[in-house]
Design a protein around this nucleic acid. Structure first.
Length: 507
RNA sequence: GGCCCGUUCGUCUAGGGGUUAGGACGUUAGAUUUUCAUUCUAGAAACAGGGGUUCGAUUCCCCUACGGGCUACCA
């Protein structure tokens, strides 16, 4: 079994946006698959039609595409084990459920949802299982002829697994090690719903078997239902083909406690979904990492280090490095609180280490969004190189790069006006004259020298004119070296900005 | 409540029977940058508690506490 081909799957239900915890599960699946030259499969778990959300499946596909984690088999690319949508596999599951009934490992149950709700309310610790199944309406408690009659009459019913008595179910989790459960504590989970759809419990086992899944990774919230799945693998006679399990630690709220939810993002001001999600029903728009200006490389990187490390001090990894270094043994057991500050740091690092050319299209888009159309791509690249060290999120490029393309819309007058003097006006007039006369004046070095010489001549200090000059060109107290900006802007533009600003400063 | 899982700086984590308990984010101070950011240097900051085992536990075991998950005809 160890030489079995590695096949892993990510099996989301299409109910809304893709949570960052989901993306991390995808990532770990993907890394493991690629590291072992295996297959990564996307399977859509849409067995609950009441929760089905239009567009969610497509959205999930788009998220994976954005992240660069493309499945080898999926509903859209197909594959040898199609279909990959459980709703399209519906007919399959009943057969296995009936087989379990036949073998005595499952049974029909006719109780209504209302009856069960009543029991849960009235009986402390009510569980549909060992203690109560005999007093409920099912094929175990009812006489055979009555069951047949009910079935013949088409009475709505579910099929439940019959959890055995007094057994200990244990298994080896790749992350947690030995885990065990007492069957007396496990309830008789529904396997097949009244509408004929399987529940997750049945579907995950049947499909993992049929799709030859070798390793099953999922969030820790699934741990309590693991014994049901183990039993199913056994009862269905597939035990020797059962995948190895790994229950991933959860991603927790940064402040309080509990699983991170999209509500936390709204409350604390950061995204939780990979990409912005629009819920057509509620009209609610939930922001995503992509739209906020995260690079997919940074997003993946920060997700990878949430619960995993390579044992060294390295924190920045490319996807290829992650594939090479990833190992389940180095995944931590404890949940991790999400830290948005660190997330931003990852993005800043990735922007810094990215080539200007790889940032180009994203930056163009941000500028275009603000009405700036870039016509000279080389100029853009130069600008990006000059400023990328001071950008944390992609939209920061607007503030940092905008003034290279258009005159400042407003000036930080508070920084200059109170200390403005006529001598300064003289200085900038003289500077303008100099620029008009000397063609070579804007070669960064010589211009800087000329600027300083002029400064001395007017008995001004750098502190008197450097900042005003910056604000003339940039509008505010930020940006790279002023002389670099001036030389990039060019002589004509610099002259024009000095003139424009001088008016505002002396008004 | 029951069951399951977990617990090293504020956060993500490394480590592991004898260490000055390491790194990163954040934070503080300083240097550089006559802008802002980057960069650099330095600092503060952690083994949940109690019992064992041991010459010696933060590390191994047990208990407690705390945290989290599950407890649906949802995944």
């Amino acid at each position: 079994m160890t030489d079995k081909k590695v096949r892993v799957r990510f099996a989301p239900s299409p109910t809304g946006g893709l949570h960052l915890g989901g993306v991390r599960t995808v990532l770990f699946n993907y890394l493991f698959a690629k590291k072992h030259h295996g297959d990564f499969i996307l399977r859509i778990e849409d067995t609950d039609q009441s929760r089905y959300v239009e567009g969610a499946e497509e959205y999930i596909l788009d998220c994976l595409k954005w992240c660069g984690l493309q499945p080898d088999e999926s509903p859209v690319v197909g594959g040898p084990y199609a279909p990959y949508r459980q709703s399209e596999r519906k007919a399959l599951y009943r057969e296995y459920a009936e087989r379990l009934v036949m073998q005595g490992h499952a049974y029909y149950a006719f109780d209504t949802a209302e009856e069960l709700d009543k029991n849960r309310k009235e009986i402390p610790n009510f569980q549909y299982g060992l203690a109560y199944r005999d007093s409920l309406r099912n094929s175990l408690s009812l006489p055979q002829h009555e069951v047949d009659a009910l079935l013949d009459a088409g009475t709505p019913h579910v099929i439940r697994i019959k959890i055995p008595e007094d057994e200990t179910i244990s298994f080896h989790d790749l992350i947690r090690g030995h885990v065990s459960f007492e069957t007396n504590q496990v309830d008789d989970k529904v396997l097949l719903k009244a509408d004929g759809m399987p529940t997750y419990h049945l579907a995950v086992v049947v499909d993992d078997y049929l799709m030859k899944i070798s390793h099953a990774f999922r969030g820790e919230e699934w741990l309590p239902s693991a014994p049901v799945h183990l039993l199913l693998w056994d009862y269905l006679g597939w035990k020797s083909d059962m995948p190895q399990w790994a229950h991933l630690p959860l991603i927790l709220k940064p402040d309080g406690h509990g699983k991170l939810s999209k509500r936390d993002g709204a409350r604390l001001g950061f995204p939780v979904y990979a990409m912005t999600w629009f819920d057509a029903k509620t009209g609610e728009l939930t922001p995503g990492f992509r739209e906020l200006g995260f690079l997919p490389e940074a997003f993946l990187n920060l997700l990878a280090t949430l619960g995993w490390n390579d044992g060294t001090d390295q924190e920045l990894f490319t996807l290829d490095e992650l594939i090479e270094k990833f190992s389940l043994e180095r995944v931590s057991k404890a949940g991790a609180k999400f830290d948005f500050e660190k997330a931003k740091w990852f993005n800043a690092e990735w922007i810094k280490k990215s080539d200007a050319s790889s940032l180009q299209s994203a930056v163009s888009a941000v500028l275009a969004d603000k009405g700036i159309v870039v016509t000279n791509e080389d100029y853009l690249l130069t600008v990006i190189n000059l400023i990328k060290d001071r950008c944390v999120l992609i939209p920061d490029f607007y503030q940092q790069a905008g003034y290279f393309f258009e005159q400042p819309k407003e000036y930080d007058l508070n920084a200059v006006k109170p200390k403005w003097t006529d001598t300064k006006t003289d200085f900038f007039n003289a500077l303008t004259a100099l620029l008009n006369s000397d063609q070579a004046a804007l070669e960064a070095h010589s211009f800087e020298e000329a600027f300083k010489a002029l400064m001395d001549e007017k008995a001004l200090k750098a502190g008197d004119v450097m900042l005003p000059f910056r604000i003339m060109l940039v509008g505010g107290k930020f940006g790279p070296h002023v002389f670099d900006i001036a030389s990039l802007l060019g002589r004509q533009e610099t002259i024009s900005r000095i003139a424009g600003a001088l008016e505002a400063f002396t008004a």
